Amino acid sequence: MTDITLSDEQKSRLVARLKTYFNDELDQDIGAFEAEFLIDFIAAEVGPAIYNQGLADAQQLFREKTEELGYQIHELEKPLP
């Protein structure tokens, strides 16, 4: 897996949301630098677990759809005389 990279716009939005969260929920003010540093840390430390779960979810969905497709193909079979 490559490192998680966010566009400047994405990072700016996340910084704003994180600052709001800290202010509203934790009653603490953090600066943009601190918020950006925290986002980078979370992306590096937590991001891989979330990414891997996304892949596992995609694999499960793929297995389910493949099985469903197998049943649909079986229904198309013509009976032998």
Rank of each mutant, 00 (worst) to 15 (best):
D8R: 11
K78L: 09
A16W: 03
D3R: 13
T2A: 14
L61M: 08
L61W: 03
I4E: 01
Q59G: 08
T20P: 00
A35T: 04
L69Y: 04
L26D: 11
K11L: 15
F22H: 06
T20G: 07
D29V: 15
T5L: 12
Q59E: 14
H74Q: 12
L80H: 09
D3S: 14
D29R: 13
A16F: 06
A35E: 00
G31R: 07
L61Q: 06
F41W: 09
K19D: 05
I30T: 00
I4W: 01
T5C: 10
L26A: 15
Q28V: 02
L38F: 07
I39D: 02
T66R: 05
D40R: 09
V46S: 08
V46N: 11
L18N: 08
Y51S: 09
D29T: 12
L69V: 03
E25N: 12
R63L: 08
G54L: 06
L61K: 09
F33G: 09
R63C: 06
I50P: 00
E9K: 14
A35G: 07
L76K: 08
Q72G: 03
Q10E: 15
I4L: 01
Q59R: 13
A49Y: 11
D3H: 11
L14D: 04
N52G: 05
E36D: 09
F37A: 10
Q72N: 08
E75A: 13
Q59N: 12
H74Y: 11
A16C: 06
M1P: 03
I42Y: 02
T2N: 01
D24K: 02
E45G: 00
V15W: 01
L6M: 13
E67M: 04
E36V: 04
I73K: 06
D3A: 14
P79H: 13
T20N: 02
I30Q: 11
K65Y: 05
A35K: 01
E9L: 14
F33M: 07
A35P: 00
L61P: 02
K11F: 00
E45F: 11
P79I: 10
G70R: 04
D57L: 07
V46P: 02
A56V: 14
F37S: 13
T2K: 13
A35F: 00
I50H: 05
L14E: 10
I50C: 07
E75G: 05
A49C: 05
I73G: 04
Y21G: 12
D40A: 07
L69E: 03
T20F: 00
Q60N: 10
L76N: 04
A43C: 10
L69S: 06
V15I: 15
I30R: 00
P79E: 10
I30E: 01
G47K: 01
Y51V: 05
E34F: 00
E36R: 12
K19Y: 00
Q59A: 11
K65D: 03
A43G: 07
E9M: 12
K19I: 13
D24C: 01
I30F: 00
G47E: 06
G31Q: 01
I73L: 12
T66N: 04
E25P: 02
E36G: 03
E77Q: 13
